[in-house]
């Protein structure tokens, strides 16, 4: 040790993400991916139940209306909404669209995402409910 480092290095706290609301929101946003993955599992269980016949489909419906399942899916829904809203919010940062010399304003790109979200959601609901 000839040249000792006399500088002070702040240790990174294990709970650094709890220090600021914006960091916490970031970690929650990242954790939304867990609920995205959960949805894939849930969807595949539904598909498997439907393709096994009416009886197993009714079984799935019963299982899905268990209070714990509903609670889990309400939480999951909150997280996927967080994902959707933050995702659309960040999209105009990455996407720079140009039509001729006109640069499409970020707000319009944002509005287009929300418009597409609405149209797709209504179309999916219509296919399922009609």
């Amino acid at each position: 040790m000839t040249t000792a480092d006399r500088r002070y290095h702040h240790p990174v706290s294990f709970t650094w993400w709890a220090r600021k609301p914006s960091y916490l929101l970031f970690v929650l946003r990242e954790l939304s991916s867990v609920f995205v993955a959960w949805f894939v599992v849930y969807l595949l269980l539904l598909v498997a139940a439907v393709s096994s016949g009416n009886e197993s489909y009714q079984g799935f419906l019963e299982w899905s209306s268990h209070p714990l399942m509903i609670a889990l899916n309400v939480i999951a829904f909150a997280f996927v909404l967080l994902h959707a809203v933050t995702w659309f919010g960040l999209a105009p940062k990455a996407i720079v669209l140009r039509l001729g010399s006109w640069r499409v304003p970020p707000n319009l790109i944002l509005a287009a995402h929300y418009g597409a979200w609405l149209v797709i959601s209504v179309a999916v609901a219509w296919v399922i409910l009609r």
């Binding site: 995205v36 949805f39 849930y42 969807l43 609901a125």
Partner: peptide, 19 residues
Amino acid sequence: AAMLIPVLLLLFGIVFPLG
């Protein structure tokens, strides 16, 4: 995920189970 999952999860995870 942002475009498709919210509506699907809302219907199959909440709306149908709650009747």
